[in-house]
Nucleic acid binder design. Structure first.
Length: 454
DNA sequence: GGTACTAAACACC
DNA sequence: GGTGTTTAGTACC
């Protein structure tokens, strides 16, 4: 069975993965296009430049309705990207209930937030519901502002100016935090009385930090941070926001507990490389070594949006496997992609072989997995639109037409292993977010040596 | 179910 | 051997 599909037949509604509205989808981006190009500041004004700071009106309070919080998305100054499904029903790019998952502050406006808010990327428990006081530094030093964001001010210094509307408040103090909200790098900017502090349940720390933070476990908190966040911190710790891999390793040795497990513990390095590869916040660049034009060093640099908005969880890029590779302008060499892909498939084969050995020793395990296979690879109509268990599962409304996401089911026969593997190879191609797949180009380019027929 | 970590494999340099 | 990439399993919430 040869599955062909073009963009005319099937237009995938991308999962946004919490990415900014103008996230640089597609490979036509010569450089990282910034979400801030169409960002709307809290005062409703467009920010025409990425480096344009918000204008802080020292006398302003925050009338909620002026932000269109109760208005439809279409009334916003910037239009949402419209995607269409095979049934030609339009859906707003923002018409999703996914929550932003930046490890940092995002001022991108979207819809479908709680309380009918159109402000995405802000956990409401941590939303700066106040304007900071006028601070002339912000007009003279955009860097100060760009690399910091407002946290919910210390309530002891907040004066509610409106008894009617708790959202209309005026703060007399605010806290400067790093984008990753990590206290270690920029803790010299924190007010001492704020630490130890109690993190809210809406912490962006993956829900892991709903515990008391004491001064003593700041280090522990640091080591508990996700790799992506730590890498982000590492890169943010240098002015150039770029490091070579060894420098990142060194930063981890010095600032985290990684690398203390002895020379044999290399897993953390693997994890760092994995995160660098998979997370679109990190871009690989090459720099010629001074004095020797023939030698180049590979540097990892923070994308601009990551500098501004923080880093997103790497796992999100797992949806639509390998999403990052299409986003970057300096597309990594296809050979690396191919080799990595082969490696991944081989790893899977090895795992399956080991499992087969175990199954021979315990037939009950095999029976159990047989059921799983039959439920996953079946016609939607027969299976009642059962969803694949993978996190890359598309919404049901994308399954209107034929999709290779599901394999034909005739009899509940466990497929030969190689067929499953080949099927999975094509599965990856379908639900990529931003590129029309199943074209000849992609077949020849990325799936070299891997037949797409089965 | 989502997220994060980890292991593993491959190919390139 | 280091690096970059990919896939997948598992634990945790």
């Amino acid at each position: 069975m040869l599955i062909t599909m073009n963009s005319g037949q099937y237009r995938h509604r991308p999962q946004n993965h919490g990415l900014p509205l103008d996230y640089p989808y597609g490979d036509s981006l010569g450089s990282s296009m910034q979400s801030t190009q169409h960002m709307v500041s809290f005062d409703g004004s467009s920010r025409s430049r990425p480096d344009q700071p918000f204008v802080v009106n020292p006398s302003a309070t925050l009338p909620v309705n002026n932000f269109g919080l109760t208005s439809p998305m279409t009334s916003l100054p910037q239009s949402s990207t419209i995607w269409s499904d095979p049934n030609n029903s339009q859906m707003s790019f923002d018409d999703q209930t996914t929550t932003n998952n930046y490890y940092g502050y995002s001022a991108v406006v979207t819809s479908s937030e709680q309380d009918n808010s159109l402000v995405r990327g802000i956990n409401f428990a941590g939303v700066p519901r106040t304007w900071p006081p006028y601070d002339p530094r912000m007009l003279n030093n955009t860097d100060v502002f760009e690399h910091s964001y407002m946290m919910e001010p210390d309530k002891r210094n907040v004066h509610n100016t409106s008894d009617e509307d708790p959202f209309v408040t005026k703060a007399t103090s605010y806290v400067r935090m790093s984008m990753s909200q990590s206290p270690k790098v920029e803790n010299d900017h924190q007010e001492p009385h704020l630490s130890p502090t109690k993190e809210t349940g809406d912490s962006d720390d993956g829900g892991r930090s709903s515990r008391e933070l004491t001064a003593m476990d700041v280090d522990e908190h640091t080591t508990d941070e996700p790799y992506a966040k730590l890498i982000h911190r590492a890169l943010m710790s240098v002015p150039s926001h770029s490091m070579v891999l060894q420098e990142i390793y060194q930063w981890f040795r010095e600032n985290t507990g990684k690398g203390n497990g002895g020379p044999e513990s290399k897993g953390w390095m693997n994890s760092i490389r994995h995160n660098l590869s998979m997370n679109a916040a990190f871009k690989k660049t090459e720099r010629k070594l001074p004095g020797d034009d023939t030698k180049k060093s590979t540097e990892w640099v923070l994308e601009d949006f990551a500098i501004k908005d923080g880093v997103q969880s790497t796992t999100r890029y797992r949806k639509g496997t390998g999403a990052k590779r299409f986003m970057r302008s300096d597309n990594p060499t296809p050979s690396r992609q191919s080799s990595g892909r082969k490696g991944g498939i081989s790893a899977y084969k090895m795992k399956m072989q080991r499992r087969a050995v175990r199954d021979r020793n315990d037939p009950r395990r095999s029976l159990h997995r047989h059921d799983i296979l039959c439920s996953q690879y079946s016609y939607p109509a027969q299976a009642g639109m059962q969803r694949h268990s993978s996190p890359s599962t598309p919404p049901n409304n994308e399954m209107a037409g034929p999709t290779p996401y599901f394999l034909p089911k005739t009899e509940p026969v466990e497929q030969p292993f190689d067929e499953v593997v080949r099927a999975l190879q094509d599965v990856q191609g379908v639900y990529h977010d931003d590129a029309p797949l199943f074209t000849h180009q992609h077949h020849g380019h990325y799936y070299d040596g891997l037949p797409s027929q089965f």
